[in-house]
Design a protein around this nucleic acid. Structure first.
Lengths: 346, 346
DNA sequence: GCAGACTATGAGAGCGCTTCCAAAGCGCCC
DNA sequence: GGGCGCTTTGGAAGCGCTCTCATAGTCTGC
């Protein structure tokens, strides 16, 4: 094990000298060794090991114009980041995929609305080769920023300014929110429930509106009063539930647009003396580890493969970066399937 | 707004030419403008704006040897990352502090045990100026890796190979785990509980042993059979609780070393027909947003300011980096206070 | 009005690497 | 045996920036 005074870093020059070759040849070997004869390859490799040489990233980037890093931009207002394992899982998936391709992950958390400038400057600064962005709301400036920076970008979740049927405009990865919602509501209907309410998510998020659309697909004639809007938090779910119960005391099922809101709803249902699933059947969305299974009764919900989505996003971006270099066009979007997980709440 | 063909990036040279000054002067202005006369400063600033100039990061790093980025290394086996908002919060705190100092956050998640090599190579590659690392277990190779790379590092949580009283060896930020545990157990004792059990965390994590020590501080004569070890997960908490109930059917209080285990314990207590807090009082640790308050009854627990710890870690590291340049020594560690949050479970 | 002490500016080297291009080496065929 | 074409190697330019150092300019004080 080489351990030349910590902090000191040998250069390619040093490796070349030690191996008795030119810097050019040493460079070739370090980058795969194509077109260099075996004896020299070995000599250089040995020198690298002996000196503990690691290429200087900045120097390399300066000439290749590639950083080997991508940015992950999370614009979500802080509240959700805290309690939402969603991002952790996506990031885990992204990290796995990036690691497998020797690419680094730079995390860009938006700290408030004035922070877009910083992101713009960062992306323009050539720190990263591409970007992954999440949870865009209508009029989110991120797409414009990445476009200006000429930065290939893949979105997590369909950006709300994109039409659902237009998978080409911008590459994104999303769960089949509409299909999942349809499955959930159909399940409730097939259970014989007649007054199925929906706690929707915020109108400016595509995942929320897609799930609402799924609900409407199955129940086109449902009274709009059976729909209440929440903010994807437990608290807002509780509020929405109370509202629905006031309007429709005889409702017998609720489909909540995410598990967090379902848990808030459950609390209110219990408080108001409704048995779940006896009086009211409850279905959520997301199958969030620490929430759905821990609820009492455990929550029937729609599962999406969040980590898989993360991997997919990274893969799409990496492929895009390759093609970029080859002058091909941007990759298309991907919709991942969802499955209904039956537990005790419905 | 300048928008020269996306992807094209003007150089300092271009800015200098446009402003009619030398590259050196342009550089000075871009870096604060000290020692440049106002008229020239203005001219250069204007040129910067007009061209939409953003300094090339790689070039700058190459000469300054500073990257303006720090690595956040998370070595936790994957399970916990998913369900544990702990990291999200720490990272949020870290991000806030780093952003305020114009420093970037590179996320390094370990993907399995063979991944240390990658981390080592990355740190040695000079991609970052310093590192923040979490949840080190005994014999964790991370400290050795960062030392070799000559990389200033601040730890989150006292590394278990460090003696509790030795705050100097390695800079870390930790909650007052022992004091918090003492407060929790004292509270239970003052409630009049006589058989206070403890569900401890894994023996190789300092936070777990510190909390156990706090328990022992207050109850030095407690039967060791009142202590069961869990793995900081809800499931392991349930298992430990069942074990304890089998050994001590008449226990009347439980102090769990974290909220997740407390939630598992609560489930088992309910299953076995114990009223909480009537028959058994329950106290957790962490005050995890989505868990403690959502439990039924809401969990009395020990709160630590996780986001604050994150900020502190970043601050310590940044200070360390500055001092490093000035040749001063590494910063000392910091212990943050904890508070007991009384809810319904005890 | 001029020496002396600063202060503001520019020229140029050089950070560590990749890569273009030319030179050298080699094998083969006629 | 000489010429042709291929492969392997090295020399050197240059990526965009910072920073040292020399030079030109400005201001004191006497």
């Amino acid at each position: 094990m080489p351990e030349p005074s910590p902090g000191f870093r040998p250069t390619l020059e040093a490796v070349a000298a030690r191996a008795g070759v030119s810097r050019a040849t040493a460079s070739r070997v370090v980058n795969g060794g194509a077109g260099v004869r075996q004896p020299l390859v070995d000599k250089v490799r040995r020198a690298v090991d002996e000196l503990g040489y690691v290429p200087n990233h900045a120097a390399r980037t300066l000439v290749t114009r590639r950083t080997g890093a991508v940015a992950v931009i999370i614009a979500e207002p802080e509240i959700r980041i805290f309690s939402d394992p969603f991002f952790s899982q996506q990031i885990r998936g992204i990290s796995k995929e990036l690691t497998a391709h020797d690419t680094q992950l730079v995390l860009l958390l938006l700290e408030g609305p004035g922070d877009y400038d910083r992101i713009a400057r960062y992306l323009a600064g050539g720190h990263v080769d591409g970007a992954l962005a999440f949870s865009l709301h209508t009029d989110d400036p991120i797409p414009e920023i990445t476009r200006r920076a000429g930065m290939p970008t893949v979105y997590g979740g369909r950006p709300s300014w994109t039409a659902a049927q237009d998978h080409q405009a911008v590459p994104y990865v999303d769960a089949d929110n509409r299909g999942g919602a349809r499955a959930a509501v159909r399940y409730l209907r097939d259970l014989g429930r007649r007054r199925i309410a929906h706690i929707a998510g915020p109108r400016d998020q595509a995942s929320a509106t897609d799930r609402l659309d799924g609900y409407r697909d199955v129940l086109p004639d449902a009274d709009p009063a059976l729909i209440a809007e929440g903010g994807f938090t437990a608290e807002s779910g509780a509020l929405a539930m109370a509202e629905l119960l006031a309007r429709y005391p005889d409702l017998d099922a609720v489909f909540a647009a995410n598990d967090l809101m379902a848990s808030g709803a459950l609390r209110v249902l219990k408080e108001q003396g409704r048995a779940v699933p006896g009086d009211v059947a409850l279905v959520g969305f997301d199958d969030m580890d620490s929430v759905a299974e821990a609820m009492d009764p455990p929550l029937t919900t729609v599962r999406q493969d969040i980590e898989g989505q993360g991997r997919l996003m990274a893969r799409l971006l990496l492929r895009g970066l390759e093609q970029d270099r080859e002058g091909a066009q941007a990759p298309a979007s991907v919709i991942t399937p969802t499955t209904l997980v039956r537990r005790a709440s419905a």
